[in-house]
């Protein structure tokens, strides 16, 4: 039997050189930091573990379940890896998976690999681990699994959003088309991802609870991950309605961008221009409304979490 990859990573040629290099730089810095951090905690034992875990993610992506009409849901695994292995190890694991998919199977380009790793390894690690870590000490299993599921869903959606933005920044796609298209697909894919991740976590908790205890997860990453995860989730939740609420303002941005990205060094000349449309009243009020709404939701979630923690402590 042959592994037939479903191309879902950005191939070469779809991102402009500047965007590709910026994301390579971000990714390289994160990976270097991840190597430093994992070396400190576990040493040489970590390397075979992460290698096998990378093979696990790769192989688990072949697990599919029939959805409807011949299509099937797939498992991506970034959030699950971050929850079980910790964010730093997960970044290295996902980097290796994406590197092999790009190098060996041409699923994803080489020049844009930095962007692919950023989207599917780093964004998913921040959101998946950050949200789970915020409740990892919670004794209530349902709460932990719910946050893990929310993390897996949001990680998928954020990765899609960031991908869409990269395409737009490269001047190769229109924001009012590519963002809703990518989000529309991944909002649904994310549900499958969330269900599989939650079921897998529940299984792991039952068979190897030692792999998922609270101290371990605190050791793997500090509270900064929680904040990063919440901020990134907020950014995703805020930006998505913004695009659909004020396509006009963003269309103008896209027009400016499309115009300027005909030149090679587009993003530099652009920044002054493209802040202006964001100041439009409708866009600003959408952001504000979204921010308030998201903060309310967050507050409710935190309060519920506190209460649950207190109750179980009594």
């Amino acid at each position: 039997m042959h592994y037939a990859p479903v191309p879902m990573h950005i191939p070469d040629g779809l991102l402009s050189l500047v965007v590709a290099l910026i994301f390579w730089a971000l990714t390289a810095a994160s990976v270097a930091l991840a190597i430093f951090k994992t070396n400190k905690t576990l040493g040489e034992k970590q390397i075979p573990l992460m290698g096998i875990m990378a093979a696990f993610i790769f192989a688990a992506q072949m697990l599919n379940f029939p959805v409807a009409g011949g299509t099937s849901g797939h498992f991506l695994g970034g959030a699950l890896a971050a929850i079980v292995l910790g964010p730093w190890a997960a970044i290295l694991v996902m980097t290796s998976v994406i590197a092999v998919q790009g190098l060996l199977f041409q699923d994803g380009g080489l020049l844009v690999m930095g962007a692919n790793i950023f989207n599917m390894g780093i964004v998913t690690a921040i959101i998946g681990f950050g949200l789970y870590r915020s409740v990892s000490g919670n004794p209530n299993k349902t709460v932990r699994l719910a946050f893990a599921g929310a993390g897996a869903w949001l990680a998928t959606v954020s990765a899609a959003l960031v991908t869409a933005l990269q395409l737009w920044l490269s001047g190769n796609a229109h924001i009012e088309i590519v963002v809703p298209a990518m989000l529309g697909v991944h909002v649904i894919i994310g549900i499958g991802e969330a269900v599989i991740s939650v079921a897998a976590l529940a299984f792991i908790e039952q068979t190897r609870p030692d792999l998922l205890n609270a101290e371990k997860s605190a050791q793997q990453g500090g509270g900064g991950w929680v904040w990063a995860g919440i901020l990134l989730s907020l950014a995703t939740v805020l930006f998505s309605p913004l695009v659909s609420a004020s396509p006009d303002g963003l269309e103008r941005v896209a027009d400016n961008l499309g115009f300027l990205s005909q030149g090679v060094s587009a993003p530099y000349q652009l920044l002054p221009d493209y802040t202006i449309p964001f100041l439009g009243e409708t866009a600003l009020s959408t952001i504000a409304a979204g921010a308030i709404g998201a903060l309310v939701v967050l507050g409710v979630v935190v309060l519920i979490g506190r209460n649950l923690r207190k109750r179980s402590a009594e």
Partner: peptide, 10 residues
């Protein structure tokens, strides 16, 4: 599918 992934992980 999730249980299978969990089993594969362990």
């Amino acid at each position: 599918a999730g249980n299978m992934a969990g089993q594969l992980f362990v």
